[in-house]
């Protein structure tokens, strides 16, 4: 077991193990790792001594065959295996028949001169499978999937600093918020931010708001928040934005209903003396959501939440049974809600 930075250190030194398993759905990091591996092979040999295989359209046997052959005019050969779906319990549409036995055979005696890197962009593998067990025994596993928020922030800040820039803390927080904490999208938005702030060398909040594309989920959450914060104008703006992006009105409504139901549940159970932990396990939702809900609930009375919930259900009924435009229905709901809590 190794982590990302340990691996990068090892690769910079040029020492390698025969088999690596890169586990986790984190495109940016796996691309970085890929590049680092490619660097190991001298430039002149790259066309001959690097193999890149996607398991959803080529066979593992082809990759294994490549791996057992001797490097061509060089010391090492690099074989990269992508999307090895056969390590997981997932079913894919892939029509490629994979002969796992070849792979198992190779894992028993990995070639010394070959570096085989397996990129598994999955949250977890099926550890009951024979092939997974065999691979985990042989390979050096690097988990890149589960990054905590401060790790992500550190990676982003490091990258920004290395370009000679600074980022304001509020801008960084907003960035995490807008991208839903996805490292890959944060990294892909960085060049734009660096360019815009080229004169000041400081990334500020305004540029983040203007340039970082927000994920769909973020929009819906923003909507729920602005409704709960009793801000009719912002709510309607976000709603129009969502509709414009072809989000289903019923889906948006469902997200709202879900949130209000959670608030109601939290409020009622709190009265019965449930604590945050109990609430989370009873309602089977994430403790953090419960914490936020507990904070929100204080601002409202039971009657208000109840009316809002019923109002939303009614809105949904009307969306399905009448031809009234969803925007109008939503607007009416928001106005009623604002009035009742205002």
């Amino acid at each position: 077991m190794m982590n990302y930075s340990q691996l990068m250190q090892q690769l910079n030194k040029g020492t390698t193990n025969p088999v690596y398993l890169i586990l986790g759905d984190q495109e940016y990091l796996s691309q970085q790792i890929k590049d680092a591996f490619v660097q190991i092979i001298p430039d002149s040999e790259r066309s001959m001594n690097i193999g890149n295989y996607d398991m959803e359209d080529t066979t593992i046997s082809a990759a294994v065959e490549d791996a057992i052959s001797v490097p061509f005019f060089g010391e090492r050969r690099l074989v990269m295996v992508n999307r090895p779906y056969f390590l997981t319990g997932m079913r894919t549409k892939s029509k490629v028949e994979q002969n796992i036995d070849d792979f198992l055979e190779y894992l028993k005696h990995p070639e010394e001169s070959t570096i085989m890197v397996i990129f598994a962009p999955y949250d977890k593998l099926d550890s009951r499978k024979k092939v997974t067990k065999a691979l985990k025994k042989v390979a050096t596993t690097i988990e890149i999937g589960k990054l905590r928020e401060n790790e992500i922030k550190k990676l982003v800040t490091d990258k920004i600093n290395s370009a000679g820039f600074q980022i304001n803390p509020d801008a960084l927080d907003r960035m995490v918020e807008l991208t839903g904490g996805k490292l890959t999208s944060m990294m892909s938005d960085l060049p734009k931010l660096l360019l815009y702030n080229n004169d000041t060398k400081v990334i500020d909040l305004e540029s983040v708001n203007g340039l970082v594309s927000r994920s769909m989920e973020q929009n819906v959450f923003d909507l729920v928040n602005s409704v709960l914060q009793k801000n009719p104008k912002q709510s309607m703006d976000i709603y129009h934005q969502l509709i414009l992006e072809n989000d289903e009105p019923i889906r948006i409504n469902a997200v709202l209903i879900q949130q209000f139901r959670l608030l109601l549940q939290v409020m009622i159970l709190q009265k019965h003396g449930y604590s945050q932990g109990n609430l989370a396990s009873t309602l089977k939702v994430h403790p953090y959501r419960v914490k936020l809900a507990m904070q929100t609930v204080r601002k409202f009375s039971y009657g208000q939440l109840r009316d809002a919930y019923i109002g939303l259900v009614d809105t949904e009924r009307q969306m399905k049974s009448t031809r009234r435009p969803p925007e109008l229905l939503f607007e009416l709901f928001v106005l009623k809600f604002m009035k009742s809590v205002g």
Binding site: P191, L195, Y196, N198, D199, S207, G210, L244
Partner: peptide
């Protein structure tokens, strides 16, 4: 203005990307 500023800076510093995606109404 934010987008055009970014594009202009990219041109000035010669840091243009090889592919852009412009989205919007």
């Amino acid at each position: 203005s934010i987008i055009t500023r970014t594009l202009k800076n990219a041109l000035i510093t010669k840091q243009t990307s090889h592919a852009y995606l412009f989205t919007g109404p």
